[in-house]
């Protein structure tokens, strides 16, 4: 069936056309390519810093401690989030969060520290959960919000010169919003990995007198580990290729280095911005095809890793 050929044509086309274009003596601008790659990488890493802990923790909670109804809701809510076009998230980042974030970086940092501490303290103050916790996240929302607000307020107090971003559109902003955008990916894949484990294993641990937490840490987590790594890889692939959010929130300044408060320009944004302007088979076109190839290769690599991990997960379930 020719459809299949068509499908396989996509990477083949990129490879072939990039290879067939004569480079006519000029070598491509490797330095620029490096900077763009670095930009994508920075955005991805920053997004993962936010998305991975939250997504995986939420999935763990949903799988082990949460009322089944709420678990369904959580999933539905995140699926809803996934359906939101990224251009909309980009708009919110560009027009609403950026101006605010420019003066509140310290607040965000402090909030990221304060909120988990507050939760931890709250947990210490309450009883051990022997049973499923049910609807706790719903009354956890005000607590988290309060902690975040407190953090921001505290941060505003200590706002020094250290946390002044070079531009309102910077890596931190991209990371925050891109993190929100990939949250559903991380969550869904982690949830799948956890759901795929035979519940009999956890049951057995519980029957031996383990608490739910122990069952999670000693049985479920090790068994699902490769699935969770696969989730991270998929999320990374998604961030790496995401265009609209980066295009709108990053400032698109091709800067090198690893400044988390500086602007960046990603591979995908370069394509979106430059490709419509360049004539087919000119020098610029060629460079851009290289950019596309680099993007393709990286995402494929991440996917391959995720695949290997998932195969391992499956092998583990059979064993």
């Amino acid at each position: 069936m020719f459809v299949l050929l068509l499908l396989c044509a996509i990477p083949a086309y990129l490879l072939a056309s990039a290879a067939s274009l004569p480079f006519a003596g000029q070598s491509p601008d490797w330095a620029r390519l490096g900077i763009l790659f670095g930009g994508s990488l920075r955005a991805t890493l920053c997004a993962l810093v936010f998305a991975v802990p939250v997504g995986i923790a939420a999935a763990l909670f949903a799988a082990h401690f949460c009322a089944p109804r709420l678990r369904g809701w959580l999933r539905a809510a995140l699926e809803l989030l996934e359906a939101v076009p990224t251009v909309v998230l980009g708009l919110i980042a560009f027009a609403s969060i950026a101006p605010w974030l420019a003066t509140h970086v310290a607040g965000v940092v402090v909030a990221c520290v304060v909120a988990p501490c507050a939760l931890f303290a709250w947990g210490l103050a309450t009883r051990t959960p022997r049973r499923r916790l049910g609807w706790m996240p719903l009354w956890g929302v005000p607590l988290v919000v309060a902690a975040l607000v407190a953090g921001v307020v505290l941060g505003a107090g200590i706002d020094g010169t250290r946390f002044v971003p070079a531009s309102p559109w910077n890596t931190l902003l991209v990371g925050l919003v891109l993190g929100v955008a990939t949250l559903p990916t991380v969550y869904a894949m982690a949830d799948d990995a956890l759901a795929a484990l035979p519940s009999a294993q956890t049951q057995a641990a519980l029957a031996l007198g383990a608490t739910r937490w122990q069952a999670l840490v000693t049985v479920a987590l090790p068994a699902a580990m490769s699935g969770l790594i696969a989730a991270v890889c998929m999320a990374a692939a998604r961030c790496f290729g995401e265009t609209m959010i980066v295009l709108m929130a990053s400032g698109n300044t091709p800067l090198g280095g690893f400044d988390w408060l500086g602007g960046l320009r990603s591979l995908s944004a370069e394509l979106a911005l430059e490709l419509p302007r360049s004539a087919p088979s000119g020098a610029a076109w060629r460079e851009l095809l290289l950019v596309a190839l680099l993007l393709l290769a990286t995402t494929m690599l991440l996917h391959a890793v995720a695949r290997v991990m998932r195969t391992r997960l499956r092998a583990r379930q059979v064993a």
Partner: peptide, 28 residues
């Protein structure tokens, strides 16, 4: 036991975060 309960609270907080983000986004 207390450590465990704190751990669970952290996980729950993450779930709360997800819910919060979606609700805030929709409202905004």
């Amino acid at each position: 036991a207390r450590n465990e309960s704190a751990g669970v609270a952290l996980l729950g907080g993450a779930a709360a975060c997800c819910v919060g983000v979606v609700v805030a986004l929709a409202a905004w």
